[in-house]
Design a binder for these strands. Structure first.
Length: 555
RNA sequence: GGCCCGGUAGCUCAGUGGAUAGAGCGCUUGCCUACGAAGCAAGUUGUCGCGCGUUCGAGUCGCGCCCGGGUCACCA
């Protein structure tokens, strides 16, 4: 367990503020949250707080005066060495002996470095990918994979109990169409002249599935009518798709806890139960033989959205509402976080309205990621299984490897659109920043090997020997890791982990150039630096571990 | 047209309202007779799309506009 350093600093400033307000009679400043940040300019210390600037108006005092009053009252004790006030900021400098001593703590914590209890006792479900089970995973569906998997890891690391869920939409029109598409291919394999309708899935894998059925069962299904075949084949097709999805997500290092079936949810009665509840709340009404959700409160130009179609079939929105209610109530999750593509943003508006109506809005969160396009014959294209245009996730993993694939998806914020050029990805895979980070880790392992070969280790290291700026700055950076974890579990910006990994690797490479670690002529210093190197190794491992990227000892 | 996302260095992108805007790639020049050169150092490139506003302070917040992408089914 490692409480973020900045929380300790903030608490010290808070204490100074409380005493200043008491002694000087400032009104109502006790409860104000203390914002603490790492200033870009090292002259401004290790941490800075803008609290005096924020309070100036309500305390009716100039910011500099408030900052000075706080500064005079902050207790100087490790980890804090000095407090200054400048331009209304309260700047804090860390005690360098304390800082150096942290390397022991970090190495001792090892796999627990950065772990917290912030979410202890919380049950959270993260649902991601959940692509329509009507075909193999593409690069477009794939983006949610690393995003959801890493977010899950971070939440677990912050103490939550997390379930990684893949929601299988094995009911509805698309599911039926899929079955029919397979049936048509199956009949073609048996020599029947039959055209592929416009709404069927045109891609090759549908033929593969039909061929697999034929290889196993021969013409056993030919005595059934097309619609009967379609029903059976839809289920067989989903089996095939899920087998593939499990295999390919495993290639990406993703393990789901649950593959939750929509059909099963429907059988559980939750759909009818939820519909009844909405009706009781006056949130649904009947019109044109369909059941509608009352939408006018949420969206101006819309009266309602269909939850049960006029043919009696439950609509997608209705099913999704029921599914969420079941997760949050019956399955007792404190929070359900969905990782969705941006094309569902209208669905998100609908779901928010529904969750609001049911009093579940605070437990419902969504990370929307922007679309992935791919470059095909020099032209950027959207992917769609219904158009038969897509780039398979498996092809990408095979071409550039698990680590580079994950890293690619995790580098930029979910809000940014990605364009994928497979040839460029292969060609540039050696330039992928992931190797830069992994190289730093391998280099550390190599240094530790070299030390061992020369009979040296970090046992009994005197950390007080770590006094150089390059050494202390590196420790400062390592200590940012717990703060980062805390940020990510609150704001879900998992891409920040890659930014940090890159920064830490770069800082280590710089340190390596300037400071010899293994030096038989100075064993004491070597021990201290070996300890520091171990601490960096811990932070790198932790970061890569959360990212699901391997941390190699050699490469 | 309404709503959502993006517009930051030549390219790809970081940048939780803070003090002088960063990284990787690219380009130029150096560095392996000390622990891994898949590395390091120095140099190079910016009207943060445009305008107005809020604020002690705006790349970050609000409004308007421009450009690119998405979305607005009794499909999912």
């Amino acid at each position: 367990m490692t409480p973020p350093l900045r929380d300790q600093v903030a608490a010290a400033i808070q204490d100074g503020l409380v005493r200043a307000s008491k002694e000087l009679g400032w009104p109502g400043v006790d409860g104000v949250p203390i914002e603490v940040e790492r200033p870009a300019n090292p002259e401004h210390g290790d941490y800075a707080s803008n609290v005096a600037l924020k309070l100036a108006k309500q305390a009716r005092k100039p910011p500099r005066e408030i900052a000075k009053a706080i500064r005079e009252r902050v207790r100087i004790a490790p980890p804090i060495a000095a407090v200054e006030d400048l331009n209304g900021f309260v700047n804090v400098r860390l005690d360098e002996r304390w800082l150096a001593a942290q390397v022991d703590e970090i190495v001792r914590a090892g796999p627990d470095f950065g772990r917290s209890k912030a979410l202890a006792g919380k049950r959270m479900q993260v649902e991601f990918i959940s692509a329509n089970p009507t075909g193999p995973l593409t690069v477009a569906n794939a983006r949610g994979g690393p995003l959801g998997d890493v977010l899950s890891s971070v939440l677990e690391f912050a103490g939550a109990t997390v379930e990684r869920e893949y929601y299988v939409e094995d009911t509805g029109t698309q599911f039926d169409t899929f079955g029919r598409s397979i049936a048509i291919r199956y009949r073609q394999l048996h020599g029947e002249q039959i055209e592929i309708p416009a709404d069927a899935y045109p891609a090759e894998y549908v033929k593969d599935i039909a061929a697999e059925i034929q290889a196993r069962d021969g013409d056993k299904w030919m005595k059934l009518a097309l619609e009967e075949q379609a029903k059976s084949f839809a289920a067989l097709g989903v089996e095939w798709v899920l087998r593939e999805a499990k295999r390919v997500t495993a290639m990406l290092g993703i393990r789901y806890d649950t593959w939750f079936s929509q059909a099963e949810m429907m059988r559980s009665g939750y759909f009818d139960k939820t519909l009844a509840e909405l009706r009781k709340l006056g949130k649904v009404y009947d019109k044109d033989g369909a059941v509608w959700f009352e939408a006018s409160e949420a969206v101006d130009d819309k009266e309602g959205w269909v939850v049960v179609r006029s043919n009696g079939e439950p609509g997608y929105l209705g099913k999704d509402i029921a599914y969420h209610v079941q997760s949050l109530r019956d399955r007792r999750f404190d929070k359900k976080i969905d990782i969705w593509g941006s094309n569902t943003h209208y669905h998100l508006i609908q779901m928010r309205a529904a969750m609001q109506a049911l009093g579940l809005l605070e437990k419902f969160e969504v990370v929307l990621y922007q679309y992935v396009r791919f470059l095909h014959e020099g032209v950027l294209k959207r992917m769609g299984r219904r158009t038969g245009q897509f780039l398979l996730l498996e092809e990408v993993i095979e071409a550039v490897g698990k680590d580079a694939t994950r890293y690619f998806f995790l580098q930029s914020s979910a809000d940014r659109q990605l364009d994928f050029d497979l040839e460029l990805a292969v060609q540039q895979s050696n330039e992928n920043p992931v190797y830069y980070v992994q190289y730093a880790h391998a280099r550390i392992a190599s240094i530790l090997r070299t030390a061992a070969e020369r009979g040296m280790n970090a046992d009994g290291a005197e950390t007080a020997l770590l006094t150089a700026k390059g050494e202390l700055d590196l420790i400062r950076l390592v200590l940012r890791f717990p703060e980062l974890v805390d940020d990510v579990r609150q704001h879900y910006g998992v891409h920040q982990l890659t930014t940090y990994a890159l920064e830490l690797a770069g800082a280590f490479h710089g340190f390596y150039r300037d400071h010899r670690v293994v030096d038989e002529a100075d064993v004491a210093r070597s021990k201290a630096r070996l300890r520091l190197v171990q601490a960096v190794q811990v932070a790198l491992r932790q970061t890569l571990g959360l990212l699901g990227v391997s941390a190699p000892d050699r490469m």
